[in-house]
Design a protein around this nucleic acid. Structure first.
Lengths: 191, 191
DNA sequence: CTCTAGTGGAACTGAGGTGTTCCACTTGAG
DNA sequence: CTCAAGTGGAACACCTCAGTTCCACTAGAG
């Protein structure tokens, strides 16, 4: 049904979804009234678009999954060295903003649509890391699932840093890339 | 009042506190009945020790704060190079186990007793990082608050990795230390 | 203008969590 | 044994949230 929506209905639906991502990212147990307030719609209207809470959560998962896929595609994981691709991915994902909070504070939320932290990572991610292992730009001692955990936790930390300390988005992104880069780089002194 | 408790009362109180840390770490919105069940006591008993939910939360904060302080003291932050001290701190904090989940999923919980993620870090932490900046073991481009975020997010990622993937605690700790070490090390190529 | 789509407020029911009281049970000390 | 401490279950009132229904309001199309 949501496919045929145009104009006002599509706009309202999108406003509710964005508000839900925002609010649920801060507090996964938030009441629907909070989400409605954040979206600047009545609670009745929210129920009109998403009859049950689970319907909203499903839609949020789908929306989040879509944004995630778009960001992944933009990172062109199969180009350049493994480490370069990983850093590109970090930059793209960082733009997901409050969705990062949601993914991190409620990992089960998106897991139906797109497994992220559960199985460690998906195939494209693994392939990128493997390439990095082979081309010598990623520390061979660090397995892909661990690097997935590493990346997501850093992204969340970076995003929190921005939203809480009010630091510059760009500045924090550079700190983030610098630390991830250092973390994955092969050790100079190790065998 | 809790000070004078002995024997059965002290034991029960401690069981409830530990269960609360465990359960609230998984789900900060968990019902008291869940915590009581995890502690293997009746809900009535839980209310006898902590009349209101807020009383329990306060006690959890105090307990968590105590464990945190003990771990910090064990790390001897003022010994050795800055980077060595930071890695020691990671190892000590990693032993906090499920408390890591609680600290991360509910940052406001301990913030009254011990500010952690809000102001970035406390004085001892800053002093350690400053020392690392001076002795050349910590990348000068990485400020203390950012390194605090970095450390905590990695600790949480590591702990989740252990509890979800069922990976070896020791193995994950070594991965954790390796990545943190790489992240904070001064760059070979940078000026 | 009229009609309709979209909306929001008010009020209700039901479910689940909280906080309380009361009573019965177990266990260890004397 | 007796007594007291500690405990757990049952039942209750209260609150919040979810989900529903009904009605009134507004804005745009005709």
């Amino acid at each position: 049904m949501p496919e045929n929506e145009r104009g006002a209905r599509a706009r309202t639906r999108q406003a509710i979804l964005s508000a839900a991502i925002e609010v649920l990212g801060q507090n996964p147990a938030a009441a629907l009234s909070e989400i409605a307030a954040a979206a600047e719609v009545g609670r009745t209207t929210l129920h009109r678009y998403f009859p049950e809470r689970s319907d909203l959560l499903k839609a949020v998962a789908a929306e989040g999954s879509t944004r995630l896929d778009r960001a992944t595609a933009s990172a062109r994981l199969d180009e350049g060295s493994g480490a370069d691709a990983l850093l590109r991915l970090c930059r793209e994902y960082f733009d997901l903003g409050s969705l990062l909070s949601l993914i991190f504070t409620d990992p089960d939320c998106l897991s139906d649509a797109t497994p992220i932290l559960d199985d460690g990572c998906d195939d494209r991610f693994s392939a990128m890391i493997d390439r990095g292992h082979r081309d010598g730009t990623i520390d061979i001692a660090l397995p892909a699932p661990w690097l997935s955990s590493l990346m997501w936790s850093q992204l969340y930390a970076g995003w929190s840093y921005v939203s809480q300390h009010g630091a510059s988005r760009h500045e924090v992104l550079e700190l983030l890339v610098r630390t991830v880069d250092g973390a994955v780089a092969p050790r100079a002194t190790a065998g």
